[in-house]
């Protein structure tokens, strides 16, 4: 693992093994950040400015240990992107409790734990950026996505309240609500269901990774110091 010089900005991206998380990690590592990423499995890619932690974001002990290592290794954290998330498409009457619990554990508890520990690392420098991930499935009340949308509705509530609670230390907390993007998260969704979902969007197409980094750039910018507690949906939702 590489240790960045103290002046280098440090970012944490969860769910960085693949998909949007891998894209954002590489994107910011290419732009001068040192990126620490995590996922339950080893990373499928590498970068000189990237370190990978293997853990479950819903495991409090593992999350605290990761932040202890980040503190020791880098002594700072400038931004945290709470991208890790899992989904399932199923009717409520056909969804086992264990599945619902697993979704809330990763999406909601994971976001809470990462944001809490990130903020603690940001307090000494009195500045920081936290970006959470919501989804358009919440405002659109998509049938078949009850547990996923509900777990993200809770993320939105966390985002708004953490924005208020963290503001004394100039830590902003915002969320992006992307439209479906061609990643593993939606790969299991039948084509006809996806077509119906896309039809409900004002912008009737899948989203792109570049549209996501456009929004994260906005939230991370120094000029966005007073942009906090906001949920920004893509696709015109």
């Amino acid at each position: 693992m590489n240790s960045p010089p103290n002046q280098q900005r440090v970012m944490l991206v969860t769910g960085s093994r693949k998909g949007i998380g891998a894209y954002l990690s590489q994107y910011y590592a290419d732009r001068g950040w040192h990126v620490a990423g995590c996922s339950r499995s080893p990373a499928e890619w590498g970068h000189p400015d990237y370190n990978h932690y293997q853990l479950d974001v819903g495991d409090e002990t593992a999350v605290v240990a990761m932040f202890a290592d980040i503190r020791k290794r880098y002594g700072r954290l400038d931004a945290a992107i709470n991208n890790a998330g899992i989904a399932t498409m199923n009717h409520v009457m056909l969804t086992p409790g264990a599945t619902a619990e697993r979704i809330f554990r990763t999406n909601t508890l994971g976001t809470f734990l990462i944001a809490r520990e990130a903020a603690k690392l940001m307090v000494p420098r009195q500045t920081g950026r936290i970006v959470n991930f919501s989804t358009v499935a919440h405002p659109l009340n998509l049938e078949g996505e009850a547990t996923y949308a509900a777990s993200k509705a809770a993320v939105e509530s966390l985002t708004r309240i953490m924005a208020r609670e963290f503001s004394p230390w100039n830590i902003t907390v915002n969320a992006i609500g992307p439209t479906p993007i061609d990643t593993d998260l939606i790969r299991g969704v039948p084509a006809d269901k996806m077509a119906r979902l896309i039809e409900r969007l004002p912008n009737k197409r899948l989203g792109t990774f570049e549209e996501v980094s456009h929004v994260t750039n906005f939230f991370l910018a120094p000029e966005s110091n007073c942009i906090t507690g906001q949920i920004l949906y893509l696709g015109g939702v």
Binding site: V64, A68, R71, K72, K120, L121, V123, P124
Partner: peptide, 13 residues
């Protein structure tokens, strides 16, 4: 701050 200082001091979160 105390959590951070103790972690630095003891090397344990």
């Amino acid at each position: 701050d105390v959590e951070n200082r103790v972690a630095e001091h003891t090397n344990r979160p």
